[in-house]
């Protein structure tokens, strides 16, 4: 079991093996999170490198934290966004939608919903996410993928909790509009099926 608190503390006292464990643990989630901002792997990798080198250099002044994950997400987000703003030629928030991919893995119990319907769900979700602003996508990611609380999201995204609610609400709105669209299409397809 990854004892976050203990490892964070030994890292702060200069234990490199603990530091490596933290890196191992968070490399993939952070990379994945970074991928919500840019499709440029090099920038994400640079940001990760900067983040971890900076952590090591400042380990004497880093305090204990209630959540290592939140601490790292917040710090990583800051490093990455700064990098992206310094490199405007690189696709950042304005990354072309067609490059985004959302690798949905669907559940295994499809008792109530047909395989066909699941495909539609996948498609409509993907479409809805593509229509979202990057910040809306980010909040959907933090809420449904990282399963963070509103307070944590607010902390990481440097928003007030009420703004976090608003942002998520707007993201859901986009989803709702898009999904009702699909439902409309679905309805049409059902109607046409009936005709046949």
């Amino acid at each position: 079991m990854f004892d976050e608190k203990n490892i964070w503390d030994t890292f702060r006292y200069g234990d490199e093996s603990s530091f490596k464990l933290i890196f191992e643990q968070f490399y993939t989630p952070l990379f994945n999170y970074g991928h919500k901002f840019t499709v440029d792997d090099h920038i994400i990798e640079d940001a990760l490198q900067d983040l971890f080198v900076k952590l090591w250099k400042n380990k004497d002044s880093i305090r204990e934290t209630s959540s290592v994950k939140n601490y790292l997400y917040k710090a990583f987000r800051r490093v990455l966004l700064r990098k992206l703003s310094y490199a405007p030629q690189v696709v950042g928030f304005s990354s072309p939608e067609d490059k985004l991919d959302f690798n949905f893995q669907l559940g295994h119990d499809h008792t109530l919903i047909s395989q066909e319907r699941l495909q539609q769900i996948r498609q409509s979700l993907s479409d809805a996410l593509k229509k979202m602003t990057p910040r809306q996508r980010e909040i959907i990611h933090l809420r449904y993928y990282e399963e963070m609380e509103y307070e944590e999201i607010a902390d990481i995204m440097q928003l007030s909790v009420s703004s976090t609610y608003k942002l998520l609400y707007r993201a859901i709105e986009t989803l709702r509009n898009n999904l009702s669209n699909t439902d409309f299409l679905l309805l049409l397809s059902l109607l046409s099926l009936k005709k046949v």
Partner: peptide, 17 residues
């Protein structure tokens, strides 16, 4: 339920490097 599972179950992006 399936939306939530779909969003949550996205496989993490794996970089080439």
């Amino acid at each position: 339920r399936h939306w939530i599972l779909a969003l949550n179950g996205q496989s993490a992006y794996r970089p080439s490097a």
